[in-house]
Design a protein around this nucleic acid. Sequence first.
DNA 1: GTCGAGATTGACT
DNA 2: GTCAATCTCGACT
Length: 198
Amino acid sequence: MRHDFKLEPLPSSFYSQPTLELAEALLGHMLVNVTEAGTSSGIIVETEAYLGESDQAAHSYQKRRTKRTEIMFASPGHAYIYQMHTHHLVNVVSGEAGNPQAILIRAIEPYSGIDLMKQRRPVEKLTNLTNGPGKLTKALGITRADYGRTFFEPPLLITKGIEIKTIARGKRIGIDNSGEAKDYPYRFWVKNNPYVSR
DNA sequence: GTCGAGATTGACT
DNA sequence: GTCAATCTCGACT
């Protein structure tokens, strides 16, 4: 645990940029979760954009509004969290209110509270701690209870991180049954970073 | 009320 | 490579 670690959340205005640009801009910033057990965080190194209305792979395709997708219709900067099989996934809501877009955080590089994260999710190698969307939520202690929070107020935060110089872009993962949308290059990651999911 | 599917992961053949 | 875990919620009877 680093004791000089300051929580400097990115302002709500940061989220008011086009979803694909925001997905790229998030790389290098920090995903932070504050709990009773302590604070843990990591640098965002992999994201995927879901463009809602026009994106067959998105839960909000054709503005499909359900109990689960409801938060995507809110203003940007909210947390869209849902359970996938035995795991939770965390998304950053994007697009202005009424335009249901979101960005899935697929991987982070452990930064602070690493012992706490290992406690929640024991692993031998650090590179296996948060290199997947279900893995990072368990390591950070993010659950469905965090659904609907914002990323600019504690306990769940995205704070200013580092500048990323080399960004790679490619197809999204795990959406093979989504027609043409499965080939859209909406996945962004930090090139050569060992904590990316694959 | 019942059924099925899913933006994943880990264990196993 | 295959497969099951475990839970939310929409679609349907």
